[in-house]
Computed example of a mutant assay.
Amino acid sequence: MSRSLRRGALAATAIVISIASLSACGAGNNAQTLEIKPDNAAVTVDDVKVQNALVITQPDPGAIGPAVVSATVFNNGLTRQTIDSITLPGALGTVKLKAAEGDGPIVVPANGSVVIGGKGNASAVIEGGLREARNGDAQRVVFKLSKTGDVGLSAFVVPASSYFKDFGPSEVPVPPATPPTATATSTPTGTATPTGEATHAAGH
């Protein structure tokens, strides 16, 4: 390759790298800048946005135990809201909500957000697990907020492994220990004297 062609190739490479760097800086961590939709479910209703919603089941397939709902709820309004309930239409599980601190409701502050799921965050535990859906299915989840009302979307059902391990159920069932096998103890059997022989001997 001639010297001039080499110079041109290097210059083109530098331009591409510069554009990529500028695009990354301009986009920051906001996927909306590049209009890239997250892999997980998201929906916006009025001032409320629910993003990265998932239903996370036990890590082992077939294990019976609680599942959880994980999501980030944003409130772009001027007044705070509370999450009054989370329901799973079509499923039998009841979702128990718990704030990150204290016994009060899960609060979504004005112009703020709350994370549901994961250590130190609010939690939404599906008591009894989710037996109607399998991993990979989509489950309808409805968040009921104090002012906005129902905000529903379909969330993927995934096991608490890999990327979702730290956001899954805190209560994982432990398989029961195998009981030791009982060892049969033989009891010595006495030798009985036949009745006829005993009588004959007594007669002599």
Rank of each mutant, 00 (worst) to 15 (best):
G128E: 02
K119Y: 11
I106W: 03
A110W: 02
G129T: 09
R131K: 15
D150E: 14
L145G: 02
A122D: 00
V115M: 09
L153W: 01
H204E: 05
A184T: 10
V141D: 01
T191N: 12
L145W: 00
N121P: 05
R134H: 07
S123R: 14
P173E: 03
E171N: 12
K144L: 07
R131E: 08
V125P: 03
G120F: 05
V115T: 10
S186Y: 04
P188Y: 06
E132Q: 09
S186G: 12
S123F: 03
H200M: 13
R140M: 13
D166T: 12
K165D: 14
G112L: 13
V142I: 09
A198R: 13
N111T: 13
S123Q: 14
T187M: 11
T183H: 05
G136F: 09
K144A: 14
P179N: 02
E171K: 08
G118W: 06
V114L: 03
Y163W: 10
P109H: 00
T195V: 14
D166M: 02
E171D: 11
T191W: 02
G168Q: 08
S113K: 11
S154A: 10
R131M: 08
T187W: 02
A100M: 10
P109M: 09
E101D: 12
D150Q: 08
E127V: 14
G128T: 06
H200F: 15
T193M: 14
G168S: 04
G136P: 01
A110N: 12
N111R: 15
T189M: 01
T191E: 09
L145H: 05
A184G: 05
P175G: 11
A160F: 07
L153D: 00
G136D: 04
K147W: 05
G128I: 04
T193N: 07
G118T: 07
A100K: 11
A201M: 10
P175K: 08
D150I: 04
G168D: 05
P105D: 07
K144I: 11
A192W: 10
I106R: 05
E171Q: 13
G149F: 08
G112T: 11
I106K: 00
D150W: 06
N111Y: 14
G168H: 04
T185V: 15
P180N: 03
S146Y: 12
Q139V: 15
V157W: 07
D150P: 15
T191I: 15
D137P: 03
Q139M: 15
P179A: 06
A198W: 08
A160S: 12
A184S: 12
F164G: 05
V108N: 01
E101Q: 14
A160E: 05
P194K: 09
R140S: 15
T183N: 06
